[in-house]
Write a protein that binds this DNA or RNA. Structure first.
Lengths: 132, 132
DNA sequence: AAAAAATGATACTATTTTAGTATCATTTAA
DNA sequence: TTAAATGATACTAAAATAGTATCATTTTTT
């Protein structure tokens, strides 16, 4: 089961890199270090920026720095910037193929399960992921 | 987050239909009832058959029936016929983009999380999904 | 024996999602 | 004013998911 997208993976590692660099870095620098495609990482960090995880400054000497304390960022924070949450009590399939949807409990179970996944992801801080 | 594939959805509903039909039915009959594409459902039930959930008989009057008691089949049983499990402690990405993989804890966390998902899925019996 | 009605196996195609690229605009420091 | 950064956004490529097509095999009925 795919829990983490590549975007999330890149985001996590970029955050850790920025932290190690003392709290600020640029796409170019991050990419040089972690071997991610520059324009893709850029798109990713822009999303973190728009969502209050990072803040950015343009121009020479610019880059991305933390807007939220590094130690408070969780796996859930990042994952759910790139992953749609299932709406509670609605069938997860676009075509409502099923004629019994009014008595179907699957949709409720699924969102219960997603809640638990979310709990799990929330319990993991990005800062806990690196280093022994 | 996508927890259930369409194959799993169809499989679940087919199982419930077979149960309601008294424990045996054919693809044609199931499809007529639940509006799934016949050859796709066929492929799905063949997988359930190969994996000991159902057993099949060919020829006129044939079809699929339970090989395992309906009440014992869980969401995990079905899901993991169609979903790869993440290998413990191995990076989930094919290209090992990351130079720090020896100190990376993400892979361990991910498989811990998958274990919890599995627990959740195991706790849901297919027989619990229908009816009020 | 032959035809019909079922599943088995498997290769192929289409659609959707994920991953990644390209490009032009804007900001800022040197 | 130019270079070095991000912002926005449209486009393309690759991979995964969903679905189709076809031929083989088995079994029952006629």
């Amino acid at each position: 089961m795919k829990i983490i997208k590549k975007e999330v993976d890149y985001a996590i590692r970029a955050l850790i890199f920025i932290y190690e660099k003392g709290g600020k870095s640029s796409i170019t620098e991050i990419c040089r270090n972690m071997n991610a495609p520059n324009p893709f990482l850029r798109k990713i960090l822009q999303i973190l920026s728009k969502n209050g995880i990072l803040k950015s400054t343009k121009g020479i000497g610019g880059g991305f720095e933390f807007n939220k304390p590094f130690g408070e960022i969780t796996l859930a924070d990042i994952t759910y910037l790139f992953t749609e949450k299932i709406k509670k009590g609605s069938c997860p399939f676009k075509t409502p193929i099923c004629s019994n949807s009014h008595k179907c409990k699957l949709k409720f179970k699924i969102s219960e399960i997603e809640d638990k996944i979310y709990e799990q992801l929330s319990s993991v801080k990005i800062s806990d992921l690196w280093r022994p």
